[in-house]
Design a protein around this nucleic acid. Structure first.
Length: 443
RNA sequence: GUGGGUAUAGCGUAGCUGGUUAACGCGUCAGUUUGUGGCACUGAAGACCGAGAGUUCGAAUCUCUCUACCCACCCCA
């Protein structure tokens, strides 16, 4: 590789043109599904006041403690590149008064997030996320609806072997009781446990359940389960959610170890996990955050949402051989020989483009042969070649580039104002033919 | 942040125990008798062998450092 003066930052990616179809496919799926569920798109700034993330994501979390890209500009600082989408979206929801605009508010977004982690497969420093947030319903139907949307997207993407894990981490009251129970349980064995778990014991006891070290996970096996500590309200909520999911035909597993690393979650938490992309298997993660809107200064409003990692989604699709939508290629290549023909070619191209036709012509000055090779390379559906004799007769032969053999009767087009109309008709006919449309034979 | 692996033209690779102009496939560009693609053939361009230092008469091949990528931990999308 050539030595560049400036390199792309560690953990970032370029998406080259030949790969864009994957992103277009995924973004198309995600948007159309979100819209089918009645979610509206929102766009928010790439950076926010640092305090927003500290207050929402939580000042004890890894994300806030060691992964934030904080930015400084002359005269003002205290801004941070968003590490996730929920905080900014909720901030925007409050700030624009959308909570007064009829509930529930259902929003979705596609945006990039930034976290200073060590990159590996499925984990980048700048990554892209599709997310949804629904504000204004504490009903478990809202939870089911949001999970259902995530499921619809994964299905539409053609993914297999995606496991949905759900759990409830309760409301602040029952969670406090549970955390105490956990501490009581682990306290006697604490000296045998790993260093990180000592930290967790103090800062986030729920994470004690999550440790992969042999000793710790062995000890954790007998730990109390949160579901036994849920208050009546939280328990019925969780049970109703399961009822709705079952009714909608969405398979799930209850996984008491799903605790999520962001502080704002309450009650329902869930993850969609793929086993096909290595250790970073969470393709989609989310949950309910009933206290967040109030925490950020809005009127108390229950809400929930999820984030879906687009790179991980694409990675899973690639590894499972899922299909991406084809890119549209050139409709017609207008070749030319000589100055006068080149002028004509430019003119026709421009007219065709007014009709939305993908038309290209030579801008390099290549030989006829090279022009045809180029037309083939860009997968042009049709081509014409304009030279002196065509200019004289006013007619060109339209060549179907995908046809295996020469047609018995050449298709001739006139080099006048009828060209675009005739070509459009032929293009549509080819399209319908490709889709298997039967024109019938009336005779 | 902590471990382990990898690093040769745009892409995929070959280069044995250090020895003259770093090879191959794909791709790119140009040609194959003057106005037509997909096949074939010919030719060209393109790599200071990830970066920097060291050992040596001599290093892509050995040593060290750095960087990036991959894998795991951690964390999460």
């Amino acid at each position: 590789m050539a030595q560049l003066m400036v390199k792309r930052p560690n953990g970032t990616r370029d998406v080259v043109p030949s790969q864009m179809y994957k992103w277009n496919t995924v973004e198309g799926i995600v948007k159309s599904q979100a819209e089918a569920y009645g979610f509206k798109e929102i766009r928010i700034p790439t950076f926010e006041e640092t305090g927003l993330f500290v207050r929402s994501v939580g000042d004890t979390t890894d994300v806030v403690q060691k992964e934030m890209y904080s930015v400084t500009a002359t005269g003002d600082d205290g801004f941070t590149l968003r590490p996730e989408g929920t905080a900014g979206t909720i901030r925007a929801l409050i700030e624009n008064g959308l909570l007064n605009d009829g509930l529930p508010q259902k929003l979705f977004y596609v945006l990039s997030c930034f976290r200073h982690e060590k990159p590996q497969a499925g984990r980048l420093r700048e990554f892209h996320q599709f997310g949804v947030e629904m504000a204004g319903s504490s009903d478990p139907r809202a939870d089911a609806e949001v999970i259902s949307l995530a499921k619809s997207i994964l299905d539409a993407a053609g993914l297999k072997n995606i496991q949905l894990n759900i759990n409830s981490i309760g409301c602040p009251e029952c969670r406090a009781k549970y955390q105490q129970a956990l501490k009581d349980y682990f306290a006697p064995s604490l000296d045998k446990m790993c260093e990180t778990c000592h930290n967790r014991y103090e800062k986030n006891p729920l994470r004690l359940l999550d440790c992969k070290s042999e000793i710790c996970s062995e000890i954790a096996k007998g730990a109390p389960v949160i579901i036994d500590y849920l208050c009546d309200d939280c328990r019925t909520h969780f049970e109703s959610l399961q009822k709705y999911l079952t009714a909608m035909g969405i398979d799930f597993a209850i996984n008491p170890k799903i605790v999520r690393g962001l502080d704002y979650y309450t009650k329902t938490v869930f993850e969609f996990i793929s086993t096909d992309i290595g250790s970073q298997g969470t393709v989609c993660g989310g949950g309910r955050y009933d206290g967040l809107i109030e925490e950020l200064g809005g009127k108390p409003t229950p809400a929930l949402g999820f984030g879906m990692g687009l790179e991980r989604l694409i990675l899973t699709m690639e590894n499972q051989g899922a299909e991406f939508a084809d890119e549209e290629s050139c409709d017609i290549y207008i070749g030319s020989m000589g100055e006068n023909a080149a002028v004509k070619a430019m003119q026709i191209c421009r007219e065709l483009r007014e009709d939305g036709v993908r038309a290209e012509c030579d801008v390099v000055g290549r030989s006829v042969r090279a022009q045809m090779k180029y037309a083939d390379k860009i997968k042009a559906k049709f081509s014409v070649m304009i030279g002196d004799s065509e200019l004289e007769s006013g007619k060109v032969e339209l060549k179907d580039m995908q046809a295996a053999e020469k047609p018995a009767e050449p298709t001739m087009l006139t080099l006048d104002e009828n060209f675009r109309g005739c070509f459009n008709a032929l293009l549509i006919a080819k399209q319908l033919d490709a889709e298997g449309f039967d024109f019938g034979t009336d005779e």
